[in-house]
Design a protein around this nucleic acid. Sequence first.
DNA 1: ATAGTATATCGACGATTGACGATATAACCG
DNA 2: CGGTTATATCGTCAATCGTCGATATACTAT
Lengths: 129, 129
Amino acid sequence: MNAPTQVPCSATNLPVDNSIAGEDIALIAKALSHPARIQIIRLLLSKKTCIGGDIVDVIGLAQSTVSEHLRILKASGIIIGEITRPRVCYSLNIPRLRPFNEFLNLILDSDVEASNEESACWVSPESKQ
Amino acid sequence: MNAPTQVPCSATNLPVDNSIAGEDIALIAKALSHPARIQIIRLLLSKKTCIGGDIVDVIGLAQSTVSEHLRILKASGIIIGEITRPRVCYSLNIPRLRPFNEFLNLILDSDVEASNEESACWVSPESKQ
DNA sequence: ATAGTATATCGACGATTGACGATATAACCG
DNA sequence: CGGTTATATCGTCAATCGTCGATATACTAT
């Protein structure tokens, strides 16, 4: 794909910010898309660091299931597992969440300046036939 | 579930902020977990408002598929569809993203104060046997 | 009434997910 | 060496997802 960083979408538009790949945003979102994983993240946020067994106790799912959630979080880069056999010490890799946060901030910021605008539905010239 | 807003997790911990339901965070994340839906959101961010047909053109998937993505985004509350038959005018419902943003900010903020700390892996007394 | 238009829904399909118990791995300790 | 421990992987299963083409819906315009 060698498209420019703008969507070819008619008239009056702000440019679309594609500086962060949509695939990457979606990937992080997918890792965050399960309550158990949110729970794990919150746990790690409060404890700074936690071994797998303790996470299993808190989450209350089978050890293999929790291990799978940890694998998904690790694969997305959101958490890090440091091995100290036989344990693994998990912790958040917070910087990994930054692109996602920028994506959200871009959207939320646009809401602030949205006061001075009329809200009529815009329709492309082609669609008007 | 009538649990208090704190995870019963031993010693030295910051309280876990459960003021926003993990299920709700996961639900929004799930809606954001597909590249096509990120693309739709970015499109709506740049155009403020867009009818379905124009979205189909940009995304480049079958009309029924795009309609399904729009349904998912609508169901999560992230977008709104205003009917002006035969068209539907879609736009972002930005406030819906705020809880998610707060969740992220809580995590990212904790990283700033993470300088003045030693990083040894904390293990629960029980796990130490 | 009829035709056209934009969108939604249906039914099918293969792929992916989430869950589990069982088993494998890889260390450490008698 | 053989047992213990913490975690990872495997195999299975039902459920959900993403996609499509075909069709239904519900207005507008002729």
